[in-house]
Amino acid sequence: MDADIFLILLQDGVVNGAIYALLALSLVLVFAVTRVIFIPQGEFVAFGALSYATLDLGRTPRSIWLLLALGAAATVCGLWTQRRTLNRTALAMLLSETAVFPLAVAGLVLWLAPLKLGVAVEAILALAIVTPMGLLIYRVAFQPLAEASVLVLLIAAVGVHLALVGLGLVFFGPEGSRATAFSSANFTLGPLSVPGQALWILGFTALLIVGLYLFFGFTLHGKALRATAVNRLGARLVGIPTADAGRIAFGLAGFIGALSGVLIAPLTTVYYDSGFLIGLKGFVAAIVGGLVSYPIAATAAIAVGCVESFASFWASAFKEVIVFSVIVPVLLWLSLRSGAPAEEE
């Protein structure tokens, strides 16, 4: 291996790592706020990428039907759980979130999709389809289980993952898709040829990290989310609606997943089930961060990306084996450091 190849692999690793970092941030966020180990995170990536790629072809992504179905289910769930407390305002809020918004998005997509208005509009539409799914899935699957144990929530997350992968196959078919890049520019940096898309990815990752930092540090919603993450009961006692915090966290997870998907769609061929492995790599990073620290998780994600890119050069068949084995020394280290057995949950 010479220096050129090294640099190319490094570049690859960092770009992929940036995506894993986004997912790791989202996973840490969701776990901290709702205690859900969000296995289906990767499905949002696949849905985002495939919706974007479909729009890119000037066709209507069938994921809007999933959005509408989820909206309908969430409407029913919401009406049922709030049947005793429902007043006009609550009803309006519920319906605007579970019915009006999904319908508006679906209508917009049906209208705009054939027009091929360019990558920016298509990317935004893809985000608009997938982001609310996160929130609606929380309402349908996890909110009724809010008091359950971490393990029950995890099993439920696996259930959601199964359903979404199956639906992904129904909606997008078994063929993979690749989309147009945001920019066709290519920069030459010494031996490296940096595609514009890679810069978009790094830029968005940085932007999102800064955005999350500002959100958590300086906004009321962000602080409420942090409070919920630290102590759920305590947060509730001081008047923070923890269910809202859960919805925000899942909405963010949907957004981050969809954004990751839109970003990688031009770089790699995405299949309906690609999201799972991508999400799991985000997990490897999140675990390295102990599921609590954003900066460590983000750094670890870059490292995971690099391990993956070098592994695929040296032993491509064992790429996944190597990436997922990274977790072993980390767990060993965490285990030795913890000494005493930890609390359940």
Partner: peptide, 16 residues
Amino acid sequence: ITLRLSGHYLALGTLA
């Protein structure tokens, strides 16, 4: 290597 840690590490560790 996983059982000293809290429950979800076993789940995630075994997943990987």
